[in-house]
Simulated scan of single mutants.
Amino acid sequence: MVDKVLIVEGTSDRKRVKRVLDEPVDVICTYGTLSDEKLETLILPIEDLDVYILVDADEAGESLRKQLKRELPNATHLYTQKGYGQVETTPVEYLTQVLRGHFDVKEKL
């Protein structure tokens, strides 16, 4: 069973981080905001796992991050640089640096 979960916003973000990860990790997409229904189906089953949050460095991403901080207070928050904006456009080299130390990452891409 996978004991680490990484929450991202969309499928492009998921593809980007999976290029870098070198271990089995559940990468969950929120597809934007979290409704009460999504909270129950996405968040409740993972509350006791090691949860990491990596969302875009924009207004929508910050709003989602605030909501996730309330729902998952023990989650570890990871950040891309504001200059890169979105996770899907963050250079894989930088993404590797962000994820290293929390996840096993591929040394050569």
Rank of each mutant, 00 (worst) to 15 (best):
K4P: 01
K4Q: 03
K4T: 01
V5K: 00
V5M: 05
L6M: 00
L6K: 00
L6W: 01
L6N: 06
L6S: 04
I7C: 04
I7T: 02
I7V: 03
V8T: 09
V8H: 01
V8G: 01
V8E: 00
V8D: 00
E9A: 07
E9D: 13
E9G: 06
G10E: 09
G10R: 03
G10W: 03
G10V: 07
T11Q: 12
T11V: 12
T11S: 10
S12C: 09
S12I: 07
S12W: 05
D13V: 05
D13N: 07
R14K: 15
R14A: 14
K15S: 09
K15I: 12
K15C: 06
K15T: 03
K15E: 12
K15H: 04
R16E: 13
R16S: 15
R16N: 15
R16M: 15
R16P: 03
R16Q: 15
R16K: 15
V17L: 08
V17A: 03
V17S: 10
V17R: 08
V17M: 12
V17P: 09
K18D: 14
K18T: 14
K18C: 14
K18W: 11
K18R: 15
K18G: 08
R19E: 11
R19L: 11
R19S: 03
R19I: 00
R19V: 00
R19F: 04
V20S: 07
V20R: 01
V20Q: 07
V20D: 03
L21P: 10
L21V: 13
L21R: 13
D22Q: 13
E23W: 03
E23Y: 02
E23V: 02
E23M: 07
E23K: 11
P24V: 02
P24G: 02
P24I: 09
V25N: 06
V25W: 01
D26V: 00
D26E: 11
D26Y: 04
V27I: 14
I28Q: 08
I28R: 12
I28M: 13
I28A: 02
I28D: 06
I28C: 05
C29Q: 07
C29K: 09
C29V: 03
C29D: 09
C29F: 02
C29M: 14
T30N: 10
T30Y: 07
T30K: 03
Y31K: 10
Y31W: 14
Y31N: 13
G32A: 05
G32N: 11
G32W: 07
T33H: 13
T33F: 06
T33A: 10
L34E: 08
L34M: 12
L34W: 10
L34T: 05
S35E: 07
S35Q: 10
S35D: 08
S35W: 04
S35L: 01
D36T: 09
D36H: 06
D36P: 08
D36Y: 04
D36G: 01
E37L: 13
E37D: 14
E37Y: 13
K38V: 05
K38I: 06
L39K: 15
E40A: 10
E40C: 06
E40P: 03
E40N: 11
E40Y: 11
E40D: 13
E40V: 09
